[in-house]
Simulated assay, not measured.
Amino acid sequence: MDCRIEEIVAKALKKMGDDRYRLSLAVAKRAEQLADGAMPLVDVDKNKLKFADIALFEIAEDKITLEGLGETDR
C-alpha cells in the first residue's frame, strides 16, 4: 500500500457514493472495531498506521461497507 493517503481517501469516498457523512461513519465504526482487536482486512502494518487510516484502506479496497458494519442507510 504505497498510494498517497489523498488517493485512498478519494477512492474510499467514491465507494461511499461521494457521501462524506457515510464515509466518516464507516471509518469511525471500523476504527473502533480495529481498536477493539479486529484484524485488518488489508495487508498493512497495523503498528505503523492509525486505525482510521486502515479503515480507509479497507473501504477503498472494497473489503468493508457501511452496511456490512451494521449501519443502515439514513
Results as ranks from 00 to 15, higher is better:
A12H: 06
K15D: 11
A55R: 09
T72K: 15
D73N: 11
V44I: 08
V9E: 11
I64T: 12
A26H: 05
D36Y: 01
K50M: 14
I8Q: 12
L69S: 02
A55C: 02
N47S: 12
V42C: 02
P40R: 09
A10E: 09
A38F: 09
K29Y: 05
L13V: 06
V44W: 06
T65G: 13
A31V: 00
K14P: 06
L56V: 00
L56F: 01
K50D: 12
V42W: 03
K14A: 15
I59V: 00
R4H: 14
D73S: 10
V42L: 08
V44G: 07
M1W: 00
R22D: 13
L41V: 00
M39S: 15
E67V: 09
L49I: 04
M1P: 01
V27M: 04
R20C: 02
D36S: 08
C3S: 05
L25E: 15
G37M: 02
L41E: 13
P40K: 12
G70S: 12
K50L: 13
D53K: 03
T65Q: 14
D45L: 02
S24E: 14
E67H: 10
L25H: 11
R22I: 11
L41G: 03
D2G: 04
L34S: 04
D62H: 14
D43G: 08
E61W: 07
A31L: 01
I64A: 12
L69H: 00
A60P: 00
Q33H: 08
F57P: 05
I54E: 00
R20V: 05
L49R: 01
L56G: 00
K48I: 02
L13Y: 10
K11G: 00
D19S: 12
T65N: 14
E61H: 03
L25F: 11
S24V: 11
K63V: 09
L23S: 02
M16C: 14
F57L: 12
K48M: 08
K46A: 04
P40N: 13
L13A: 11
E58Q: 07
E6Q: 07
A31T: 04
K11E: 14
E58N: 11
I54K: 05
L34F: 01
T72I: 15
A12P: 00
K15G: 05
L41F: 00
L56A: 02
D45A: 10
A31Q: 10
F51E: 01
R22E: 13
R4G: 06
L49K: 04
G68F: 09
K50R: 12
V44S: 09
I59K: 03
A52Q: 08
